[in-house]
Amino acid sequence: MAKVLSLAALLGLWTLVAWLTQSPLLPSPMRVGEAILVDMQSGELPFQMACTLARVVAAFVIAFTLGVAAGYAMGRWRSVDRYADPWLVVLLNLPALVIIIFAYIWIGLNETAAIVAVALNKLPNVIVVTREGARSLDPNLDEMARAFRFSWQSKLRNVIMPQLAPYLAAVSRSGLAIIWKIVLVVELLGRPNGVGFVLGSSFSLFDMTRILSYAISFVALMLAIETFVVQPLERRTNRWRRRAA
């Protein structure tokens, strides 16, 4: 309830300021809403959002898969950690923009470069969190699995993954939020489609209605994914914790 009220207040404030200023630089929520509807009907908005979403998903899958594997190895084996840690520190401290520019210059202005750039930006964060998770794995359960001769698949599924789950859930939530923001920058700098591209071209025209309609639509989409995909998944993996409490 408080959430709804708070959002309504924000909307009210926006309407009021838009009405007071009467400037094209701040269109009213109604006008933005209309713009969204028009672009929805023409198929323009869904197309651009789909382009962006595809990049988000691709970058997320790559960063997540590589990051979990590397983070696990670094958390489990100290020697791996010793060699890989300096690389990790460099990657962690490289500004997102620098990685994007490198990728576009070395790989070219193409889809591969865009996705690689985003994935590389997210990768160190996945590694750091997974490494923390791998370090906290219970050695007693590991021994149990060895004594009972679990196959590696069974051990991964039944012993390791459930212990890593809270870390992976945290990293996917923060990951999704960071990745889509970086994807917009990547699109703005070097892609001919996607929400970031539209924002860039609207910026050069000072078209605030379009900027707001695309930004709001995409935020809404990401919130929907968070609410209807990420959170239920997290609840499912934590079911045993709540029952036992």
Partner: peptide, 25 residues
């Protein structure tokens, strides 16, 4: 060489039910 072990701490998988803990082995 098929081995059954009862450790001092039960070492069950907390995220699996009793039946699944047994079924897994």
């Amino acid at each position: 060489g098929r081995l059954g072990v009862v450790f001092q701490e039960p070492r069950l998988l907390p995220w699996r039910t009793v039946a699944d803990n047994i079924r897994l082995v």
